[in-house]
Amino acid sequence: MSDKGSVAEVFRAFLALGLTSFGGPVAHLGYFRETFVIRRRWLSDPDFADLVALCQFLPGPASSQVGFALGVMRAGSLAGGIAAFIAFTLPSALALLICGFGMGALTDDALSGLIHGLKLVAVSVVAQALWGMARTLAPDGPRAGIALAGLAATTIGAGVMGQTLSIAVGAAAGLVLCRGETPQPVGHIHVPISRTVGASALILALALLVALPLLAPLGGHVLAFFEAFYRSGALVFGGGHVVLPLLQAAVVEPGWVTAPDFLAGYGLAQAVPGPLFTFAAYLGAVAQLPPNGLAGALIATLAIFLPGLLLVYGALPFWDALRKRPLAQAAMRGAGAAVVGVLAAAFYDPVWTSAIGNGLDFLLAAAGFLLLTIWRAPPWSVVALLAAAGVALH
């Protein structure tokens, strides 16, 4: 950092981005670079590249983790990171919370048409994410094989266990199949966090991941709800869209959220700025059992973001040493390939099977996919188009 700023400065800068950052995690990182490297000059390009590499290495929402870390580094305190997180997340979380409440105000015909159109949006968006992730994370024979194995493991061992096993086996396979030369790191990240504090954050993140499933049956529905979203946020490797299968297993299979409401919310999440993880606010609001409504949205949003923020806060003091370890890089390549398979399994069921019922559905979903990938249409316009088509068809 060229100098230190205030928490208020961090909040204002990230609130502007939270209101205008459409396009998903990759686009968010572009906005961050333009704002904080080029225009505000908070840090250099090599330092920004290092920070992005760290957040892509860790599980969690990469763009939110980068923003949180920038807030910590700029303000020189945890308060700066929290300010950046709240400002960047709040606009989209509020928008999706309102959408969740608004679902109940629609007539049956309009609601069924809207939900169907948003399911088609989910097909287009997940297909685009799967295509891009496969090209990036599984570009060669060994990683394509790991992705296929991940698809098989997720399909055969449905649910959370199958997904977790896929990622774990992918990381182990990466240690054998994905070892190679790692580019020499450049730059250096200066952070106002001691190694003791960082280690404490990492231990807390892991302790919660292990302890919450054991405590959830004893703590009632609220703790089980928190655990489901925390686990989903802790296992997202390779991109925000991977949260789709994890959340589907966490909230749809137990019956907390219906499959139509789930996919409708995922479609709506494409139309708002800010991080995709705020999809959790919608799910918390529409949950069938308490906590739901505003309380459910707050619990779900906090739980899904918490592990990623703890991990990046804890890893910052150790990143310079960690990124030089070839085995760590190889394991992450394998885990990244495995999540392509996990997402592919979710693309088939529930996304494809619940949305594509006839040739016209397929035509509309294909049009949305082409609009996103070939013509580079903004996601909100595809959401509006397919949602309107769904209502018209009903």
Rank of each mutant, 00 (worst) to 15 (best):
A84W: 07
D109W: 03
Q163M: 15
G81P: 05
L106H: 05
T155A: 15
G117V: 06
T164H: 14
V126N: 00
S92T: 13
V66E: 02
D140Q: 12
W131V: 10
S64K: 05
G157A: 03
F85P: 13
G113F: 02
A49G: 10
T155Y: 04
R39D: 08
G141D: 11
L97P: 00
D109K: 13
G117C: 01
D109L: 08
A152S: 14
P142G: 12
G117D: 10
M73R: 13
D47V: 15
D50Q: 15
V66P: 09
M133I: 09
P59N: 08
S112R: 12
T89N: 10
G71C: 10
A144V: 15
D140G: 10
L111D: 05
G132H: 08
G132N: 09
R74M: 02
C99G: 13
A122G: 02
R41G: 02
L94T: 02
R143S: 14
V125H: 11
G81E: 11
S63F: 05
L130D: 01
T155W: 13
G60E: 03
T107D: 12
L165G: 15
A49P: 00
R41Y: 04
A158V: 09
L118C: 07
G150C: 08
L70K: 00
P61N: 10
W131K: 07
A152T: 14
I82F: 13
P61S: 12
L120Y: 08
A105V: 08
F101Q: 14
M103Q: 15
T164V: 14
G104I: 02
R40Y: 10
I146L: 06
R74G: 11
F101K: 09
P59A: 13
A122S: 15
I115Y: 04
I146E: 01
D140E: 14
P91M: 07
L51P: 06
L137T: 07
A127Y: 06
L165C: 15
